[in-house]
Design a protein around this nucleic acid. Structure first.
Lengths: 194, 194
DNA sequence: CCGCTATTAGCACTTGGTACTAATATGAGT
DNA sequence: ACTCATATTAGTACCAAGTGCTAATAGCGG
């Protein structure tokens, strides 16, 4: 026997895990057993066939892509918006957003949500942030949902500036406050949302 | 004829593009032509079969995953660091970091680089950002390399605070300035809000 | 009616499997 | 050594979603 069954199955799981694209045939050569043995192993371990494995990976990507496209331009999901006035977005903090050590969300994600919202609330796709002041009041952890509310507090049409205040909260407790001085890039605004 | 060939092929490309998981059979039903016609179309258009399409998507994800893991904890690459004193990181602005409309880098990426660097320069893995003031002085575009320099400017050990100033520049021109009030979590600080 | 393109049909073959049955090995217990 | 159980191997039929190839037919313009 080349390897005890248990050990082979462990190694098999590992192999497939770090290269899902490997066929039963390749595996049978690698472990020097028959293809059937590999298949029995996969069945016992509940590992699907190559095509299904690939499909899963692909579906995951595809969903991610679909999901990340809207996210691309706005971090968090906008649930309410009144152009030039106010907007609200929610952002679910996931494990990838936090420091591994303490599970606290990294500041730039809160900033990204708030800044995106500030850009979005401007009636101008080409708005840029000029200045900003931030306060991180309470740490946010994975699993929490951050609700950001943006309000346009002031405007200065001559200078093409607008001032936006964003307050983010988790369960009604404020966790973050940001003020943003925004610059409008379009020419003089004639009046209506396009 | 249900549709001119050209139009069908255009629609076919589109269909496959926004759902790569569709089979020839499904497509033949959809366009009300035979499977063979669909296959001829794919050949003319150079569109690979379903399995190959799925594989491509999967391979892409797989590579992306491997690539994105190391980037996880620090945005930008730290090229020099003296703990509690100063640090330098570089960040290459790529197409995914900019607004599609005007190719200008989204503010949160510059913030993320600066904030990450501020966290890193603290001799404390668990540092948190408390307050921050930002100035976006000049727009940064895709293809440019942003060099961020962080400097610890002040400390307040009793309050577990430190103040970090980060200046980011492209080709020696300052594009961004941020000041960060950081909170150290280590030491024996008992008053930790969870 | 000829010629041309477009479409459809049919068959053999390919990959990477599943499902199932049956034979053989191997080792442990008694 | 004999027996039983588990492990392994072999072999067959079948499937999905194709490719590759040949051949037939449809539709239309001139």
């Amino acid at each position: 026997m080349r390897k005890p069954k248990k050990e082979r199955q462990r190694a098999l799981t590992e192999s497939i895990n770090d290269n899902p694209f490997v066929t039963d045939d390749e595996l049978s050569t690698k472990f020097d057993v028959s293809v059937q043995t590999i298949r029995l192993d996969r069945m016992e371990l509940g590992i699907p066939e190559l095509r299904e494995r690939i499909k899963h990976v692909a579906v995951k990507t595809f969903e991610d892509e679909v999901k990340s496209l809207p996210i691309d331009e706005v971090i968090g999901e906008i649930i309410d918006i009144e152009l030039d006035e106010r907007a609200i977005s929610i952002f679910d903090v996931k494990p990838e957003h936090v420091f591994q050590r303490n599970q606290i969300a990294r500041g730039h994600h809160l900033f990204a949500q708030a800044n995106s919202l500030a850009v979005a609330v401007m009636n101008d796709e080409l708005a840029l942030t000029v200045k900003s002041e931030l306060q991180f009041l309470r740490p946010v952890t994975a699993g929490q949902r951050v609700v950001a509310k943006a309000q346009v507090v002031d405007r200065n049409p001559e200078k093409n500036r607008a001032y936006v205040k964003v307050v983010s909260s988790v369960d009604l407790a404020t966790v973050f406050i940001g003020t943003f001085e925004m610059y409008r890039m379009t020419e003089q605004s004639e009046g209506d949302e396009k």
